[in-house]
Structure formats: C-alpha cells, structure tokens
Measured scan of single mutants.
Amino acid sequence: NQASVVANQLIPISTHLTLVMMRSEVVTPVGIPAEDIPRLVSMQVNRAVPLGTTLMPDMVKGYA
C-alpha cells in the first residue's frame, strides 16, 4: 500500500505548503504520493483543505 499526502491541519486557500502542514498516511482513495512531499513545499493549494483530507493533484497549483 502506497502512502499519500494528507493535510495535518486546515490549509486555507492559496496557502504555500510547508512540511508541518502535511503527513503521509495510507488512505483510500490514493492521492499525491508521500514521496512527493519535498516537491510540494512552497506550492500553493487552490482550495481550502480540511484537516485529514488527502491531497489530490488538482488541489495543488502547478503539481499536475
């Protein structure tokens, strides 16, 4: 099972991601792979992401 990136807190819209905001967890459905966490740092979310939500490629500007 592959770990995905999950929000560690509420991430407001247009926030630049930091390591503190993300954790890796095995979830269904599978989202952005956990090994991409370093790549996600300083990218922006294009919507509010609630605590515990799996980050999907379409939620992060410039990821997909």
Rank of each mutant, 00 (worst) to 15 (best):
V26Q: 14
P57V: 07
S4E: 02
Q2K: 12
S14K: 13
Q9F: 11
M56H: 05
D36E: 15
G52R: 04
V45C: 05
E25H: 08
D58R: 09
P50W: 04
M59T: 06
Y63F: 09
L55F: 08
A64M: 14
T18H: 05
A3P: 14
G31I: 00
V60T: 02
M22F: 05
T28R: 13
T53R: 13
V30N: 14
P29K: 06
L19M: 14
G52T: 03
M43C: 07
Q9D: 08
L55W: 02
L10C: 10
M59H: 11
P38N: 11
L40F: 01
S42E: 09
A48H: 13
L51A: 15
L55S: 00
V49D: 02
V27A: 07
V30D: 07
D58A: 11
I11M: 03
D36G: 04
P12Q: 08
D58G: 11
Y63H: 04
N8F: 04
T15A: 10
I11S: 01
R39N: 13
E25D: 08
A48F: 10
H16W: 12
V26F: 09
S42V: 04
A34L: 03
I11Y: 03
M43Q: 07
S14N: 12
V45N: 02
T18K: 11
S14W: 15
E35Q: 15
L19T: 11
I32Y: 02
G52H: 07
N46Y: 07
Q44W: 05
Q44G: 04
T28H: 15
A3C: 07
P50L: 13
V49G: 02
M56D: 04
S42F: 09
I37G: 03
V60F: 05
P50C: 07
A34M: 07
T18M: 10
I13Y: 12
N1V: 13
R23I: 08
A34I: 06
Q9N: 06
P50N: 10
P29S: 04
G52Y: 04
D58P: 06
V26G: 05
I13P: 11
I11L: 08
V41E: 06
M59W: 11
A7G: 02
H16S: 15
S4Q: 01
E35C: 08
H16C: 09
A48N: 15
M22C: 04
E35V: 15
I13L: 14
R47I: 11
P29R: 05
M22Y: 02
L51F: 11
H16Q: 14
Y63T: 03
M56T: 12
G31H: 03
L55Q: 01
T28P: 00
L17G: 00
V26H: 10
Q44C: 06
V5D: 02
G31P: 00
D58I: 09
L10K: 14
Y63V: 04
T28I: 15
E35D: 11
V30K: 12
V5H: 02
Q9L: 11
Q44F: 05
N8Q: 12
P50V: 07
T54G: 01
Q9S: 09
N1Y: 10
V45H: 01
P33W: 09
T18I: 06
Q44P: 05
A3G: 13
V49P: 02
T28C: 08
L51H: 12
M59A: 08
G52E: 04
S24G: 14
Y63G: 04
V27D: 01
V60M: 05
M22K: 00
V27E: 02
P12E: 09
P29C: 05
I32T: 01
V20G: 14
A48M: 14
G31Y: 02
P29T: 05
P57N: 05
T53I: 08
S24Q: 08
R23G: 08
T18L: 07
V26E: 09
L51E: 15
L10T: 11
I32N: 00
L55T: 01
V49M: 04
V49W: 04
H16D: 09
P33Q: 05
M22T: 01
V49R: 01
A64P: 10
S42A: 13
N8C: 07
V20C: 08
A7M: 04
M56R: 09
V5T: 06
I32V: 08
T18S: 11
P33Y: 06
V41P: 00
V30C: 08
S42Q: 11
E35H: 14
V6M: 04
P33K: 10
A48C: 08
A48W: 13
M21G: 00
V26M: 11
G62Q: 07
V27F: 01
L51I: 14
V20T: 15
L10M: 11
Q9T: 10
D36T: 08
P33L: 08
E35M: 12
S24E: 11
A3D: 05
T18E: 10
I11W: 01
Q2R: 14
S14M: 15
A34K: 06
S14D: 13
N8W: 04
A64E: 12
N1Q: 10
R39Y: 11
L19S: 09
L17C: 03
P12H: 08
V27C: 06
L17Q: 00
K61M: 15
H16L: 10
M59L: 05
Q9K: 12
V60S: 00
T28V: 14
M43N: 04
M21C: 04
L19P: 13
G52F: 05
V20S: 11
M22D: 01
L19Q: 10
A48V: 15
V60A: 02
I37V: 06
V41R: 05
P38R: 08
D36S: 09
Y63A: 03
V41I: 12
S4N: 02
R23Q: 05
I11C: 02
G31D: 01
P57M: 06
L40S: 00
A64W: 09
L17N: 00
A34V: 09
R47T: 13
A48E: 15
V60Q: 00
L19G: 06
N46I: 10
S14Q: 11
E25C: 07
T54F: 03
T53N: 08
G52V: 02
E35G: 15
L19W: 14
K61V: 15
V5S: 03
G62N: 08
I11T: 00
E35S: 15
V30M: 15
L19K: 11
T28L: 13
L19N: 09
V30H: 12
A64T: 15
V26A: 09
G52D: 10
G31A: 03
V6S: 01
P50Q: 11
I11A: 01
V27G: 02
P33H: 11
N46A: 14
I13F: 13
V6Q: 03
Q2D: 08
A7H: 02
V45I: 08
P29W: 04
A3Y: 12
H16T: 13
P57S: 10
R47C: 09
P33V: 10
D36R: 09
E25K: 15
H16G: 09
A7R: 01
Q2V: 11
L40P: 00
V41N: 03
V5P: 00
M56G: 04
M21S: 03
